[in-house]
Design a protein around this nucleic acid. Sequence first.
RNA 1: GGGCCGGUAGCUCAGUCUGGUCAGAGCAUCGGACUUUUAAUCCGAGUGUCCUGGGUUCGAAUCCCAGCCGGCUCACCA
Length: 493
Amino acid sequence: MHEFENPIPDARLNKLKQLRSKGLDPYPSRYSRTHNSSEATSFYEDLESSLDENGQTPEISVAGRITAIRGMGKATFIDVMDSHGHLQSLARQGSLSSYSDLRDIDIGDWIGMSGPLMKTRTGQITLEIKSWIMLSKSLRPLPEKWHGLSDVETRYRQRYLDLIANEDARNIAVLRSKFVSELRQFMQSKNFIEVETPILVPIAAGGTARPFVTHYNALGRDLYLRIATELYLKRLMVGGLERVFEIGRTFRNEGLDLHHNPEFTMMESYEAYSNYHDVMGFVENLIHTLAQTILGTSVIKYGDHNIDLTPPWTKLDLRKEIISKTGIDFLKSNDVESLSLSMKSIGINVEKQVSWGGMIDKLLSSAIEPHLTQPVFLVDYPVEMSPLAKTKQENPHLAERFEGFIAGMEICNAFTELNDPIDQRARLEKQEELRIQFQDEDMDRLDEDFLTALEYGMPPTGGLGLGIDRLVMLFSGKPSIKEVVLFPQLRNQ
RNA sequence: GGGCCGGUAGCUCAGUCUGGUCAGAGCAUCGGACUUUUAAUCCGAGUGUCCUGGGUUCGAAUCCCAGCCGGCUCACCA
């Protein structure tokens, strides 16, 4: 039922033959344009007041894809689109010797053309074609010009059509690029250095997630796709790099929904001599700055909400927040049985074999997180579900960890990194135990090389993981992650 | 995985409830007219595996069953 099985229309193939039979190459190798569409517009506007009586500028050359053809017999209007916008052109039989060759152009073709700019009687800046050349013959018809392309599946599977037909799709692609580039600049301006760590790893550690497995033939062993960059970046902290960040793809072999794609982009950063309070300030500042720079505002419209990103964001003590919303105190319900009873009593289903940390996680995502519309930091997580975070000195059951939420989405996870190698080993061993006990559930994994690194000494460090896809969703007002990932994962055809 | 909704021309859709001029419209395409149009206009042409496979029926795009694909939602999951 998809494009790939559809035959190429005969009419297009015939035009292709026509071009060739006239000795015209339908796929030449290059074209020199002097202006893109927006430069052409300003070129005209700059010269407009000084033009002579025929109102034409000197000749320029532009190139792009034909989006509309309006033939009027001995004159033809051709709209051309490039990545900067649209430009109208006009071919007239009187002033274009190859006018009759225009029979072989179609909507979708790439052409180059040159001539002076002028204004039509309706005031539209228009290139009067003196010469033109086919740059690439299109063999398939484009989506309809008026309604555009709206079939969601086609938009995702053939994103190029979405990009051609929908300005919004182009805007999101540009916005995402801008976001990443501004993010990178921000990090660099704070003297973080950008690094790259392995994607193929022997142990998928640094988070609780099911990994993808692959096989490396040369070494005859299975490897995993990373679920986080955390442990490698911390090795760099051990190495003394002090401020590092990585923007990169991570992979989780899990469900697929509005907020989850199996491969997604995270930024992780680590800063020596700082703790999670410093990171909180850093995140507020970072996201607020990006909104200012990219969107020119501190207040983002998302669905029905106006979200104000101005720092400082609300800080909510996680434990107090759970108590006030559910009456459950996780310090008192500190074993699986009592927590399970309390959760059942407020209608949360915990019948599956689940660890204590897993249950708290569920409690959070069903009772707390959906209500966090404005930017919020949930602060101080139970140590049991934070195996890589340092414990609070005042209370060994709590970790110096926070997560940031906007519009009900988790957008970051951060903590004061645990740098006590003995404690870290004990915590990861506990995770390994839990993994055996709760077969269905994912736990963090023990990475012996990482522990060895810690034993050499890591400075006190504040660490951060930031979900880029979700922030781009927020910045672009999109409710689905598939809208901000150019090629989202879909089922097989 | 459960529930709901959907899949008809290249694209956007109507037709399904109530089976029988139901193979349709607009855009795109093809032929013709037109030298300042811009959703150009005017005249003419319908280009199709009605998602797939079964079934019911004299007759199925339409009703039934199974499957595939997608969207939303719940569950699961950072």
